[in-house]
């Protein structure tokens, strides 16, 4: 009964809130507009936007030392998370049956375990850094911790549901997923979408000045 609720009305409701919430957030950004740039540009903006969109996936030259921890932990978490999200066998089935109507070959069990370990390790390292580093302690807000904890709980319940194949665990996982979907648009998790806008704005502005950003 509970499983039917979380996989039925709650799931659909959460998806609607997620989609509308993300749309509102993006509209909130773009509706503010940008100031026109009348300065004679050295070059086009859009190639710079494209370049920065890619280049910020790595550290700036000469800056690797200061960013190594964040880079490694960040990639561990994000790669692990996306492998889990897109290639965990139950997710592939769920996407095929409930969302897209088609699926793909799921990751083998060993890869699922590896991805889960990477994701957990990355997330915990990032969160420990947030809890211990003076700079991170100074700038972190409730939202930073809430987003990390919620993501952790979603991953944990997901792994438990997969490994133990129990309906109640699956229901709990779906419940946390729904909570994450509802929380997502109103939180810092929005960076998953808005980083494209930020990198593009900066890359374009700097390219107009003739600087590779």
């Amino acid at each position: 009964m509970f499983l039917e609720f979380v996989e039925g009305p709650l799931w659909y409701g959460s998806v609607v809130i997620f989609l509308i919430g993300v749309a509102i957030r993006l509209i909130e950004v773009f509706a503010k507009g940008t100031r026109p740039d009348f300065a004679a540009a050295r070059g086009l903006g859009w190639p710079g936007a494209m370049r920065t969109l890619v280049s910020r996936s790595w550290t700036a030259k000469g800056f690797t030392k200061g960013a190594t921890f964040h880079l490694v932990a960040g990639y561990l978490f994000h790669i692990g998370l996306f492998v889990l999200l897109l290639f965990a066998a139950p997710h592939v089935v769920f996407i095929e049956e409930r969302i897209l109507g088609f699926g793909w070959t799921p990751a083998p069990h060993w890869l699922f375990i590896l991805a889960a370990e990477l994701a957990f390790a990355g997330l915990m390292l990032l969160w420990l850094r947030r809890a211990m580093h003076p700079v991170l302690r100074r700038i972190s807000t409730f939202d930073d911790h809430a987003g990390a904890i919620l993501t952790f709980v979603v991953m944990l319940t997901g792994c438990m549901a997969l490994l133990m194949s129990h309906d109640s665990l699956r229901a709990i996982h779906m419940l946390t997923v729904c909570l994450l979907l509802i929380y997502f648009p109103f939180s810092r998790l929005m960076h998953a979408f808005t980083f494209v806008i930020s990198r593009s704005y900066t890359g374009a502005a700097m390219a107009r000045k003739g600087v590779r950003a």
């Binding site: 957030r25 909130e28 950004v29 773009f30 509706a31 503010k32 507009g33 940008t34 100031r35 800056f63 200061g66 960013a67 964040h70 960040g74 947030r130 580093h133 700079v135 991170l136 700038i139 972190s140 807000t141 930073d144 810092r188 929005m190 960076h191 808005t194 980083f195 806008i197 930020s198 704005y201």
Partner: peptide, 22 residues
């Protein structure tokens, strides 16, 4: 002062703190 750029920047910031090192 909060234009689309600023709104996008605040929406994107994950408070990683790397800017401190720069």
């Amino acid at each position: 002062q909060i234009d689309a750029k600023v709104a996008a920047y605040f929406s994107s910031c994950v408070h990683c703190g790397l800017c401190a090192e720069a």
